[in-house]
Amino acid sequence: MEQAFFILVAVVAVGSGVLVVAARNPIHSALALMVCFVQIAAVFLLLRSPILAVIQMFVYVGAVIVLFLFVIMMMDVREEARIRFMRKGTKLTVAGIFFLGVEMITLFLGSEYLFDLTTSARKVEMSTVDGLGTTLFTEYLFPFEVASVILLAALVGAIILTRRARGTG
């Protein structure tokens, strides 16, 4: 049952991912990416991490995609910007990407003994939000604070970058 759900979700995710790259209109790309993000949130649910699924929905679907859509609406997506792919070097790039994908899968499937080395790590009771919060706010408190500073810097940077220069605006 769970495997059937996973296959459904994965097929929709890969299909919408292909649509992100292949769509001519950037709006269609952004909407396809939204579908893909919802599927990835479902994958997180299948992985028993509901808090990450919620964060995925809030941050990606609720904020990032909406930001992208606003920027696409602000811009004049002209006809020449809708040209799909690069004019030259496409075949070589596709071959390289295909080779890299095959390489990643074979390296992963060929290294089963890697799991025997690492599976003996401590087993914690999963799927509890309080355990995640305790680990985040004790062991990872400093990275958490650094992340907040980075978000603040990004906020200030985005405002300064998009502000018109004084006198010309």
Partner: peptide, 20 residues
């Protein structure tokens, strides 16, 4: 994950539109 990563990399390397 590998499939989605490859698709995303194809988009980064092949498309010409900055937004995409």
């Amino acid at each position: 994950g590998v499939l989605l990563f490859s698709i995303g990399m194809a988009g980064v390397l092949l498309r010409r539109n900055v937004l995409i």
